[in-house]
Amino acid sequence: MPDNENRPVKVEVKNLTKRFGDLLVLDDMSFNIRKGEFVCVVGPTGCGKSTFLNCLTRIHMPSAGDIYIDGVPANPRKHNISFVFQEPSALPWQTVEQNISYGLKIKKVPQDEINRRVNQILDLMGLQESRKAYPGELSVSAEQRIIIGRSFAMQPDLLLMDEPYGQMDVKMRFYLEDEVIRLWKELGSTVIFITHNIEEAVYLAEKVLILTNKPAKIKEEVYIDLPRPRDITSPEFIHYRNYITDKIKWW
């Protein structure tokens, strides 16, 4: 059993169900995520991956069941949750540094702590030189780096990423995947990363949750026990990839 089984439970999902009218999207899902764990959720397109995240952040309320963070029902006002959305979501009217401090200001973090964290993130993301620039003046990938930096700056209890690299080309994706791993290791956050890209999931995750087709249920939890940095051409890597692909194919 991998070592993450020894860590305390951070997020507890109990019988989570979501209906939109007659449409059942999430069907009685239960699982745990441990502190500091990097979990990837994969599943067929349109299976309800995004709905699942939206229930976690209370953008949607679950129809039944609930999600507990540290034993308390999830609540963005109380918990420190960060979300990296699929679409670019930097505030265009704020500079890079204002964007990174945006969530910290909402949480009323003291100013000197904000300055310290913003500087740390600017260094880690290589954005120090463009800290006064507006997102629109930078490239699309730099904008995505701002958003990822903004999320990690929160030092969140829970970091949710919804196909953040869906729109990127392969080179940029590889680069940003490594960035996320680096930040995750440096800051020890708990991450739930949603993707339909199985290779990406195997490259990033400690644990992969495979969802079924709609209505989504947990089909299987797979622990990826590979050393980092991972080699996407190694036989073990390919074995994991094929295994998960098969699981998604046969529902």
């Binding site: 952040t57 209370r58 953008i59 963005p76 006002r77 109380k78 918990h79 949750i81 960060s82 979300f83 959305f85 679409e87 979501s89 505030l91 945006y102 969530g103 909402i106 949480k107 929160m154 949710l160």
Partner: peptide, 14 residues
């Protein structure tokens, strides 16, 4: 107003 930007703020607890 972009819904994503509203959601970003909401998940930060604003």
């Amino acid at each position: 107003t972009s819904q994503v930007l509203i959601d970003v703020s909401r998940t930060f607890g604003a």
